[in-house]
Design a protein around this nucleic acid. Sequence first.
DNA 1: AAAGAAAATGAACGATGTTCAATTTTCCAA
DNA 2: TTGGAAAATTGAACATCGTTCATTTTCTTT
Lengths: 205, 205
Amino acid sequence: MAVADRKAKDKEALKALILKAAKKLFVEKGVDQTTIRSIATAIDYSVGTVYVYFKDKNAILHALHTQGFIHLSGHFKVLYNVSDPMERLKAMGKVYIKFAITNPDMYDLMFSLKAPMEFLDAINQEEWNEGKGTFDVLRTTVKQCMDKGHFKGHQLEPLAFMIWGMVHGMCSLEISKRSCGVNLGKPETIVEEGYGEFLRIMDKL
Amino acid sequence: MAVADRKAKDKEALKALILKAAKKLFVEKGVDQTTIRSIATAIDYSVGTVYVYFKDKNAILHALHTQGFIHLSGHFKVLYNVSDPMERLKAMGKVYIKFAITNPDMYDLMFSLKAPMEFLDAINQEEWNEGKGTFDVLRTTVKQCMDKGHFKGHQLEPLAFMIWGMVHGMCSLEISKRSCGVNLGKPETIVEEGYGEFLRIMDKL
DNA sequence: AAAGAAAATGAACGATGTTCAATTTTCCAA
DNA sequence: TTGGAAAATTGAACATCGTTCATTTTCTTT
């Protein structure tokens, strides 16, 4: 049955090829300006082939979405070396920001997927479970900080949500600004400065 | 010249009528599922008429976008009565959150307008100036807090940006969650709880 | 009432996402 | 080697979208 195995690998390879081309075009031309035809042309396949490997355009978006979260969680792995939870928490924000600012188009994709989404799809649930997965890493770290005596008088869930919202909010505002051409070109972004303020605040908690 | 005046008023009225119908359809069906034809049908006019009053679909989106910011800044006016800047800052966040959670679709429109945007339009600059306008209210208030001795050892610009990012981030995460059907139906939203944690932190600064 | 101006129309165009019958390629048994 | 079944690929065709513009209708003025 080696043949079947190779076929399966080929299928995965072509699927990956489609995704690679789609991602490149999304970044270059934007999601709306990227047509299925342009993706097919880029990899020298026909339109129909793309539809064999992906149900529709949203499925491609969804796959890239998933890739993005996997990519991000990969970056988080360096944090396993940081034993002190407070230091880990601080570093986690920096990793998150670096990822978002370095891959703004991918980050956009990861968090602006509501419009073309069918409501309440099973797929959709998966999507947010992945988001929840990254959030769990944050929640766990905050919990460990509290166990060590930090954040006295605060509640775990809302506090973790606030921290995620803060980092996400600054990143998405900055990315929006940049895609609108409002770029001040500072070497250190306002996002990192803003996060610096938060770090100074955390030192007191 | 009474005729010309009435004509001008009619034009404005029809423009407003188009916007009203567009907003309703955007909220009901989503932006992508709302066609120019459906807008025209809703107000019993032809497709062409819509294009007489708006250059294209983006122009309608832009007009609604502007309306949203005007609406939000209207809600901010109750804050003029709060003389203490720290109290005003706290209240400002609550007003902002209430607006976002009460008008999630409008809020979405206001901050997810990058995709269909032409890069570096003069229009685009206007857009962000409006956004900057609302941000200026926040910046000014933070400045007054610092003048009164709060936020020692912090920088105005990054701190204000961090606060905006935090509130915006929590709101947009919550709105995304809801539009995906992940609704826990708590009476008090996680956003308000998260903001509550921030308020407790601010009391120490 | 007629002519000119303004407003409204909707058929038509190009492009898009999507489908599917037809075609080509790949595979393995005879 | 070969023949035909299974799998993979194709691209013409369809519905719908945003958009345009020559034409028609409505209104204003003389």
